[in-house]
Nucleic acid binder design. Structure first.
Length: 320
DNA sequence: TTGTGTTTTATTGCCTCC
DNA sequence: GGAGGCAATAAAACACAA
């Protein structure tokens, strides 16, 4: 038989050992020590830090006592008590049944009111303190699991957003190069010495398109840029789900015409583009804006989420 | 069998609440 | 000031590969 008597000599809050010894001497052979703790004696007598387990009193030679029953006198008498009280302290695992019972109780309510604790202890043949410790440790495990779940969910969200962002970035680069090549073409046409002004050239272009003399590259660029605008709107709305309107990352109401800022890269990137340096270019781009891309508006977009991790982002926050 | 990593039980110290 | 909760940690029990 293994008994557990834990006495914390340094514990000023509990004079448990003295209590136990005093109580032991008062035990008759017909009275089980558990009755001291479970039959209405105030558990507070034990003090908060006390740890006295009688769970193994009935576990003689590997026989597990029934823990749902009452604490009947097993009739072993003083010898067993003596043996019990002189066992070295040993940590004992709860039985599978005890754990299952506690798990079910935990599912119902993961906090433990004093009455429930006493009742559980009674049902399981454990000390109230052991039940409390089990719940405390169980809450800690539950919390860890929750953190892992939350982390996984956030990571999945992050991966999705990142892949969306990457594909948009590729598309943006592709469109950027198309815009550049079209601008070059336009410049070329302008420099070829036509008698008409650039403006005339530009204003003629829609009619050319209407009669079928279409520049497929230009048309493609228009449609693709429109697609880009739509996608950016999607991103904007997705972002607004994450950042609130007061977020410094979101410049509410600040919309720019595409290329108006003289920088075709501003869609995602704040850095300057080479194109913005050329004044003639700017003129042409302004014309392009008013003609080729008259309705294209782009919400200014903050820096993309860093791929190397998302811990630093303000929107990754835990809530319980 | 033994070394090692993981899980479970229990303690300690600090904090908050009443 | 006592009771109870939590984080950190110790230590026993357990699992498992070599």
């Amino acid at each position: 038989m293994e008994g557990v008597v834990g006495c914390e000599s340094a514990n000023s809050r509990s004079n448990l050992c003295a209590l136990l010894q005093a109580h032991k001497s008062s035990f008759g052979s017909s009275q089980h020590p558990e009755a001291f703790f479970l039959s209405g004696s105030s558990p507070s007598l034990l003090g908060r830090r006390s740890m006295v387990s009688f769970e193994d009193v009935h576990q003689v030679n590997g026989l597990t006592r029934p823990f749902f029953g009452s604490f009947d006198n097993d009739g072993n008498g003083d010898d067993e008590l003596d043996e019990y009280f002189h066992q070295p302290e040993k940590k004992r695992r709860l039985t599978v049944d005890q754990v299952q019972y506690l798990e079910k109780s935990f599912e119902v309510e993961n906090k433990l009111e004093p009455e429930r604790k006493i009742q559980l202890a009674k049902d399981l043949g454990l000390q109230p303190r052991q039940v409390a410790i089990w719940f405390q440790n169980r809450r800690a495990r539950w919390k860890t699991k929750q953190l892992e779940k939350d982390y996984d969910a956030l990571h999945t969200t992050y991966d999705t957003l990142k892949s969306d962002y990457d594909s948009l970035l590729k598309e943006k680069d592709k469109l950027k190069s198309e815009v550049e090549s079209l601008s070059d073409k336009l410049l070329l046409r302008q420099n070829n010495g036509t008698s008409s002004s650039v403006k005339d050239t530009l204003s003629r272009e829609p009619q050319e398109k209407q009669v079928g003399d279409n520049d497929s590259a230009s048309e493609g660029a228009v449609s693709k840029v429109s697609v880009l605008a739509c996608k950016q709107e999607e991103i904007s709305s997705a972002k607004s789900d994450i950042f609130d309107s007061e977020s410094p990352h979101y410049t509410d109401g600040v919309h720019s015409s595409f290329l108006e800022a003289g920088d075709s890269s501003y869609v995602f990137e704040p850095e300057q583009s080479d194109l913005s340096q050329d004044e003639d270019d700017n003129l042409n781009k302004g014309l392009l804006t008013s003609y080729v891309f008259p309705k294209l508006e782009v919400v200014e977009y903050s820096d993309p989420p860093a791929p190397a991790g998302f811990e630093d982002h303000a929107f990754w926050s835990w809530s319980y």
